[in-house]
């Protein structure tokens, strides 16, 4: 297990990667900036588990909060609305 690189409140940016395989980072959130809401825990990498590999070491999984208006330029609701997405550490960089 590698220690968590980010803490709640940290600004992070989701990598804008387009790679094959089994990915749990939704397309719509790639490239967007948000704030770490919490560290959910440490988990094996699903991108490896999907191919019957062990996916170790476990890595931090974060719940990251994004402003809807930033994610969807045409978002119809108020500016305060948010979307939370769980993202594994290797998809995040410091914003």
């Amino acid at each position: 297990m590698t220690p968590a690189r980010f803490q709640p409140g940290d600004r992070v940016k989701v990598m804008k990667a387009d790679v094959p395989g089994h990915l749990r980072t939704p397309w719509y959130i790639r490239g967007h900036e948000g704030e770490v809401e919490r560290i959910c825990g440490f988990f094996a990498n699903p991108e490896e588990l999907a191919f019957n590999r062990h996916g170790l070491p476990k890595r931090a999984l974060y719940r990251v909060r994004f402003a809807q208006k930033k994610v969807w330029p045409d978002y119809a609701g108020p500016a305060g609305d948010t979307i939370d997405v769980e993202i594994y550490e290797h998809w995040l960089e410091r914003a």
């Binding site: 089994h22 699903p46 588990l49 999907a50 191919f51 019957n52």
Partner: peptide, 11 residues
């Protein structure tokens, strides 16, 4: 099998 394989093969 793992749930990740279930998902991968659904995808």
């Amino acid at each position: 099998m793992r749930v990740d394989e279930l998902r991968k093969n659904i995808e």
